[in-house]
């Protein structure tokens, strides 16, 4: 039984890597950039809301920090009725 479980033991490093990636994506969005991301979120929403109706909860703004470039990801779900109105 113990031999069996030893052979079946999954390596732990991929788990560490995955947990870190999820955690740090979250922490980077909060720490250091908290004001900037919050501000951008408000202003981007204000611009879009002028043209389409939005659900505030269906908006996701995140910042990914890289060595040379950082990417700002804005994920906004636009309901069908709103897009019809916009068109």
């Amino acid at each position: 039984m113990s031999l069996f479980s030893f052979l079946n033991r999954r390596s732990s490093a991929p788990m560490a890597r995955e947990r870190l990636q999820v955690l740090l994506a979250h922490e980077r969005a909060q720490v250091g950039h908290s004001d900037l991301v919050g501000l951008l979120r408000e202003e981007i929403l204000a611009v879009i809301a002028r043209h389409v109706q939005l659900d505030q909860d269906k908006v996701n703004v995140t910042m990914q920090r890289g060595e040379n470039v950082s990417t700002l990801e804005v994920d906004i779900e636009i309901p069908v009725s709103a897009s019809v109105r916009a068109a």
Partner: peptide, 20 residues
Amino acid sequence: RAERGDMLKVDDVLEILSIP
């Protein structure tokens, strides 16, 4: 240990922290 999958590899850490 890294080869056995029980320790983060060099590339894992480099990818996460993205500094040379």
